[in-house]
């Protein structure tokens, strides 16, 4: 099966005082190519650790992970051992290169691979169109608003045509209105490009609205507590996002998950004296 395979992943950090933190314990899942997975959880549940492991930026203590991609009409699977352009990342604001123009940021991946300048320029123009920034190519990134900067970040990631896109709270620093708009953009990009996406978020609403699958993670040790399969993302492609978010089903699930996360947070807060 094409997609991401994660098996018995564990991550333990040693602390300087001799103790250890179990950031992840025995996490296993398969993500099929083309799926959008949202990951939610209270702080300290290991969701960013998980994302960084999948990105190849952290080496897990134990467990296997591999990515299976289509190749020459068949499939090829290879283990994840380091960062690679086949797994693109979108970060929270501040990961753009402010010494490059918008177009240079977007064309960075192809340029590093030594792609021809003309081909890169054409690809950049297409992507500017895709993310709704036509005509902004020559601007400096710091001249753009926060929402526009994240559009550039999305385009920069897409320029490499990655198999898997890892998003680490990409909309976390945006104001509420811009955030809703950008959710629509992410949804459309997912649909149009058919990319596999893993989205880390703090917002229950965002996770429900964008995730075809949703993991709620729990801390100490970091693990997947509940898994959902959702239909809101598909509805959102054609329907009105406000309507979907106001629907009875959406509201019920939002409250259910919020209650779950609250309980986890309280459990942490309610046990003072125990080291993190």
């Amino acid at each position: 099966m094409r997609g991401l395979h994660v098996e018995n992943l564990s991550m333990v950090y040693d602390l300087p005082d001799g103790g250890a933190v179990e950031a992840l314990r025995d996490v296993s899942f398969d993500l099929e190519a083309g799926e959008m997975l949202a990951v939610l959880g209270p702080s300290g549940c290991g969701k960013t650790t998980l994302l960084n492991i999948v990105a190849g930026l952290l080496r897990p203590t134990s467990g296997q992970l591999s990515l299976t991609v289509g190749k020459d009409g068949g499939e090829a699977s290879h283990p994840i051992t380091g960062p690679s352009p086949e797994r693109g990342m979108v970060f929270q604001q501040g990961a753009l290169f402010e010494w490059m123009s918008v177009a240079e940021n977007i064309g960075f991946g192809p340029r590093m691979k030594g792609a021809r300048a003309a081909a890169t320029a054409q690809r950049v123009e297409e992507l500017l169109d895709t993310v709704g920034l036509r005509g902004f190519g020559d601007k400096a990134v710091y001249e753009l608003s926060g929402g526009m900067q994240q559009r550039v970040a999305l385009a920069r990631c897409l320029a490499n045509d990655p198999e898997l896109i890892l998003m680490d709270e990409p909309l976390g620093a945006l104001d509420a209105l811009t955030r809703e708009k950008m959710q629509g953009l992410v949804l459309n990009l997912w649909h149009e490009t058919g990319k596999t996406i893993v989205l880390i978020t703090h917002s229950v609403e965002e996770a429900l609205f964008l995730g075809q699958r949703l993991f709620v993670m729990a801390p100490r040790p970091g693990r997947i507590e509940r898994e959902y399969r959702l239909d809101f993302a598909r509805q959102g492609l054609n329907g009105d996002s406000r309507e979907i978010k106001a629907s009875a089903e959406f509201t019920r699930m939002r409250e259910e998950i919020l209650a779950m996360i609250w309980e986890m947070e309280e459990e942490i807060m309610g046990r003072p004296g125990e080291e993190a």
């Binding site: 930026l57 352009p85 990961a95 290169f97 960075f108 920069r156």
Partner: peptide
């Protein structure tokens, strides 16, 4: 900022 370095590596930079 570490995310800039990470972004560059995941975009394929050596």
């Amino acid at each position: 900022r570490l995310s800039k370095v990470h972004a560059a590596y995941t975009l394929g930079a050596s």
